Simulated scan of single mutants.
Amino acid sequence: MTSLTIEQKRVDIYPSAKPGSPVIYLNTFSNAVNSVYKNLMALGCPDFCLVAVSNLKWDHDMTPWYMGPISKHDTPCTGGADDYLKLLLDEIMPEAEALLPGAPAWRGLAGYSLAGLFALYALYQTDVFARAASMSGSFWFEGIMEYVCSHEMKRKPDCLYFSLGDKESSTDNPILNVVQQNTQEIETLCHGKGIETTFVLNSGSHYQACNKRTAAGIHWILNR
């Protein structure tokens, strides 16, 4: 594993020994990276490279536009996804892939929570990613349903993975309690466009088994 710092982002690169393996870009927290990778190894994935980006400004880098606080003590989301995606494509990706054993067969994008929202949103902005995995994606985010229903992805992805905890929509917060309905509607919409999709309902809340759920989604898109 090699680590880089690019524009204050930490980039951990786990190369494959096999040239031309696919590469998965994972936006995550730095303390989750090793656990996710160990879970992937335990699942017996085919050869792949993992590029994990952390030290993110979560409510800025992973959100497509401004959204006010969802609760009294929360902070707003400030809509920096387009800028972060440009950094990912123009700087992080070239530097990371220069350290890989050959050009990747394809690129995937994965993330949990707001990074799961970003994983889908990015497909509407760039054709670089062939597959994506959104685990507990924040599809309660205001305006995201209208956006995906009125825009087309830059390319038809090979496959899309969606998962959610079965208790995530069990909340009195009217913003958050639509998350399961919205996730399933997005999955149905994408499937209707001829994309291979799956929706997995895990046991538990948003904060349970995050790294295992992340690995499960990446494992799925690697095995299509």
Rank of each mutant, 00 (worst) to 15 (best):
L123E: 02
L160E: 01
E168A: 07
Y124E: 03
V178A: 04
E168K: 09
C159S: 15
E168C: 11
C159M: 14
G143N: 09
R131V: 04
M153D: 00
D158K: 11
Y121L: 07
A122F: 04
D166N: 15
S163M: 09
F118R: 05
R131G: 00
V178N: 04
M135E: 07
S134D: 01
A122L: 07
S170I: 12
V128I: 10
F139V: 01
H151V: 08
C159V: 14
V128K: 08
S136E: 02
V148F: 09
F118A: 02
I175S: 04
D172Y: 14
S169D: 14
L176V: 08
F139I: 06
V179H: 04
F139C: 01
F118W: 12
R131F: 00
Q125D: 02
P157Q: 10
S169C: 13
D127C: 06
F162E: 02
R155I: 14
G137Q: 03
Y121F: 14
N177P: 05
D166F: 05
D166Q: 05
E146V: 12
M145G: 03
V128Q: 05
M145K: 11
V128H: 07
H151M: 12
A122N: 03
D127N: 13
S163H: 07
R131W: 02
Q125I: 04
F129M: 01
N173M: 11
R155M: 14
V148H: 01
V148D: 00
V178I: 14
E152P: 07
Q125A: 08
Y124K: 06
A119M: 07
R131N: 01
S136K: 00
D158A: 12
S150M: 13
T171Y: 11
F118T: 01
M145S: 09
S169M: 12
E152S: 15
R155Q: 14
K167C: 10
M145V: 15
L160T: 00
L164K: 03
D158Y: 09
I175C: 04
S134C: 12
F129D: 00
M153F: 10
F162S: 02
D166G: 02
D127Q: 10
A122S: 13
P157R: 07
V148Y: 10
P157L: 11
E142N: 14
S138C: 08
N173V: 07
V178W: 04
C159Y: 07
E142H: 12
H151L: 07
S150K: 15
K156Q: 12
A119S: 15
C149T: 15
P174T: 11
A133L: 01
T171C: 08
A132W: 03
A133I: 03
P174I: 12
I144Y: 04
N177F: 05
R155G: 05
V179E: 00
R131K: 13
E152F: 14
F162L: 06
C149I: 12
S163P: 03
Y147I: 06
M145N: 07
N177V: 04
S138R: 06
K167P: 01
L160K: 04
I144F: 10
R131L: 04
G137D: 02
A130M: 03
M145Q: 13
C149D: 14
F129C: 00
K154R: 15
I144M: 13
K167E: 13
E142Q: 15
M135F: 09
V179Y: 01
R155E: 11
C149K: 15
Q180E: 13
Y161F: 13
D127E: 08
Y121E: 02
Y161M: 07
V178P: 00
S169H: 14
